[in-house]
């Protein structure tokens, strides 16, 4: 594990991975979008609006995966003081927030024609809105605390406390009566999506996942570079 802990080695490894990840993102996204619009059938109940699912479900999935990455990184920062953990957690936040926002907006655009409303305060929708606020609060906390060590610690604790929301989101549709339908993809006994509709969905999930890691690596690199710039400037100040 600590083999990748050295920031210089991390940058070298990510430079090696990035071209591949970017290619995978572009290929999966192109293939996924082609299938969504040209090679997938209308739903028997929902007609063409089922196409919103192919962006809504992957975005919602990434919103939760992003927060899980943030929480695991925060835990390894607090417990093992892993030297890259803070940067990974911090880099994941804006990406997760973007996916959460996408899930909320596309869900609203889907809910209006199908449910008959843009928004309801049911357990699923409300807990996802809370997820967005957790992301935004986490990002604000990093900016608010000047001392980077203190900021890292406070943010890691916030990320871990907020993690209780993730299982609540996942199981909200099972625990309480909600307007939102139960899970289709990740559920016991296999998915309840027809294969013709499952393929574009899986391609879009793959594309979003590859995109997530491209941006994550870019942002971790940016944070490491920023740290080095600050160290260099301090050294220069000391010299003069």
């Amino acid at each position: 594990m600590h083999k990748f802990a050295n920031p210089a080695r991390f940058i070298r490894l990510s430079d090696l991975l990035l071209p591949w990840l970017m290619a995978v993102t572009v290929i999966l996204l192109t293939g996924g979008l082609y299938m969504v619009f040209f090679a997938s059938p209308d739903d028997y109940q929902q007609g063409a609006t089922v196409r919103i699912m192919y962006v809504h479900v992957p975005a919602a999935y990434m919103a939760m995966l992003g927060y899980s990455v943030m929480a695991v990184a925060s835990a390894s920062s607090l417990i093992w003081k892993h030297p890259l953990a803070d940067q990974i957690a911090r880099a994941a936040a804006p990406i997760g927030a973007a996916f959460t926002l996408i899930a909320l907006i596309t869900g609203s655009l889907w809910g209006r024609p199908m449910w008959g409303t843009w928004w309801v305060w049911d357990a699923r929708l409300t807990s996802v809105l809370i997820l967005l606020f957790l992301y935004l609060g986490y990002m604000a906390l990093w900016e608010a605390i000047e001392d980077p060590i203190k900021a890292a610690k406070a943010c890691a604790i916030l990320a871990l406390v907020g993690f209780v929301n993730v299982p609540i989101i996942k199981f909200s549709v099972d625990w309480w009566n909600t307007l939102h339908q139960p899970a289709s993809l990740f559920k016991m006994g296999g998915s309840s999506i027809h294969p013709e509709m499952l393929w574009p969905l899986l391609l879009m999930i793959g594309a979003f996942k590859a995109y997530f890691f491209v941006i994550l690596l870019w942002r971790v690199k940016t944070l490491l570079i920023g740290r080095k710039i600050r160290a260099l400037r301090m050294a220069q100040l000391g010299d003069n």
Binding site: Q45, M114, Q181, P182, A183, S184, H194, E196, M197
Partner: peptide, 18 residues
Amino acid sequence: TEVLAKHDENYMPKEVAE
């Protein structure tokens, strides 16, 4: 005063449903 539709978690083409 308000009626909202709830849809289920099954997705399939019309022909398959029929």
